[in-house]
Amino acid sequence: MRNILEITDATKQFGGLMANEGITFNVGEGEIVGVVGPNGAGKTTLFNSVSGAHTLTRGSIVFDGQDVTQKKAHEIARLGVGRTFQIPQSLNEMTVTENVLVGALMHTADMKKAAEKVQETLELCNLAHRKDMLAGKLNVAQKKRLEIARAMATDPKLLLLDETMAGLTATERKDAVDLILKINRMGVSILTIEHNMDVVMTVSNRVVVLVSGKLLMVGTPEEVTSNPEVISAYLGGGSDTDE
């Protein structure tokens, strides 16, 4: 499998704080990779580095064969990296349609073509019935879907999902999982930060575990859940390691 994303020795330091240190892993084309770790493990920092919101202190990030380590966020987005945010950054004073439109306008200035893309994306994300609503009036689940829709309208090759399931009910989570799987079937690779282990196990082909800014392990969901170190570090202590 060809790698769509190659992260090598990714290190990010904020003053005296080492948020990420020596992280190395790949995301294959068409793969869903889950990123897990306790709070403060450096998951969002890693996302910010991949999406260009931060620049790495050391290491490199190669996306689709291109070194994007020093590139800015908008340049990386234009190369095909879409992202959502931990706290939804919906454009509250714009309608749902307009929120998605700004994504669709990335590759075309033709409003008609962009509008077609918006319609398609709204239907994909089950937001067509809310298209004229102001984004600020949506509930949390809808805002999260809107973020995905905005990112999907840019036709990404890789989608970074930052805690998409946080704050959702069980039904909403199921819908979100279905949406992620549907997007993946469309050929989009996905790197997702997730706290909900059930979801991680359901959607991920592989799981990356971060602890205190460092890579603990990369493996299949089964390998990760049976690893005593992961259980100890992330799941709150397992019998083997605690003893």
Binding site: A77, F85, R150, A151, A153
Partner: peptide, 8 residues
């Protein structure tokens, strides 16, 4: 941030 994420 959202603007940069859609290539602006």
């Amino acid at each position: 941030d959202a603007a940069a994420s859609v290539g602006i």
